Simulated scan of single mutants.
Amino acid sequence: MNTPDNVCAPAPVQRASNQANGELVYAIGKIQPSFPTLNLEKQYEAAALSIKANPDEFYKVFSYQVTADNQPDLTYRPFLYLAQQATWVLTINLVDSYVLIPDTPTQLDALIDTTNHLQDDYVMNGRLVGFDMPNSRADYMLPTVKVKHLINSADISIPVLADGQPANRQLALPALKPTTGLSGQDRAGNYFKSHFYQIVVGSDQQLLLEDVQAIYVQVQDTEPTRQVYEFILSSSDRSRYACNIDVTNQYPFVSSRLAPFAKSN
């Protein structure tokens, strides 16, 4: 299948250095824990050694459980504090882009779960809250995001077509690079990339396009109180389809499903 050769979409990732606190973030990247001090790093190494875990088995260490004395039904995680004090970094296009902090204990568990799949890409939905040092021995700071929701990209369902084949076997994913996901257009672009196959399959379980040659993105200003972006997809047979993605609030969504595009006068 053809991939786009004329994509007018969000540019490759850049560091977000001048963004205001509270700004919404919707980004895609890999997540890796590290330790801000040598002392904490040594504590982690000792913990891993004590349970015969390899140094890169973060999940095994952070999730390790023991039973309380005389209370066989009560377990606790003695090394959970290491995950709580770790620095969680989201890397986009091989660039360290954000320090992540969990919004709730549930999101801390979600961060810990990512260490079971360190090579997978994750969709991170959150809010910018400031800046932090990814490591006390580093000489640069990264934007800090409070994580509201994490999704493993591999867990985003790919629709099965009417012929029984998954959509990704019939249509190539456009070659769009993830962005920092701070601007409205970048958040819309990341949502489009992560939910592409759900967008291009119609209610009859058929692909709406056979290929994607180009993508054009523009602001949809028909709703002035909303942040909506229109994605126009062109295929090799010169057909064009468009959909709208609304990024006004924390969670982006498709506000207008993909349909044949007719330019208004």
Rank of each mutant, 00 (worst) to 15 (best):
Q119I: 12
V160M: 09
Q206F: 14
V212C: 09
N135M: 11
P178Y: 00
A175P: 06
K146M: 05
D121C: 04
P178I: 09
M141V: 15
D155S: 11
I151L: 04
M133P: 01
G164I: 02
D121E: 14
G184E: 02
R238L: 12
S153E: 11
M133C: 12
Q213L: 15
V123I: 15
R226L: 09
L150F: 14
Q220R: 05
K193C: 02
G202W: 06
D186T: 07
D120Y: 02
F196R: 01
L209I: 14
K193W: 00
P134Q: 01
V123L: 11
T248N: 08
A154P: 03
R169M: 05
A162F: 07
N125W: 03
I245W: 12
V200D: 00
Q227F: 10
V200R: 00
Q220S: 03
L118M: 08
F131Y: 11
D221G: 03
V123S: 04
D121W: 00
A167I: 10
K177G: 06
F231W: 04
I232T: 14
D246T: 06
C243V: 07
F192D: 03
L209C: 04
G189N: 04
D155M: 00
K177M: 05
Q227N: 14
D155V: 00
Q218H: 11
T225R: 02
P174V: 10
Q220C: 07
H149F: 02
D121I: 02
N135I: 13
S236N: 15
D132V: 02
N190I: 11
L142I: 13
N168T: 03
L209H: 04
A154S: 10
H149G: 06
S194F: 01
V217A: 08
K193Y: 04
S183W: 00
V145S: 13
N152C: 07
R127A: 07
T144H: 00
I151T: 12
D204Q: 15
Y191V: 09
D121N: 12
S234I: 03
V129W: 01
L207T: 15
Q220K: 03
D211F: 04
L173S: 01
H149T: 13
L161A: 07
S239I: 01
P159K: 07
M124I: 06
T180G: 15
L150P: 09
I245P: 14
S203A: 13
A138R: 11
F231C: 12
L171M: 03
N125L: 14
Q198L: 01
Q165N: 05
S235E: 09
H149R: 15
L161G: 06
H117Q: 12
Q218R: 12
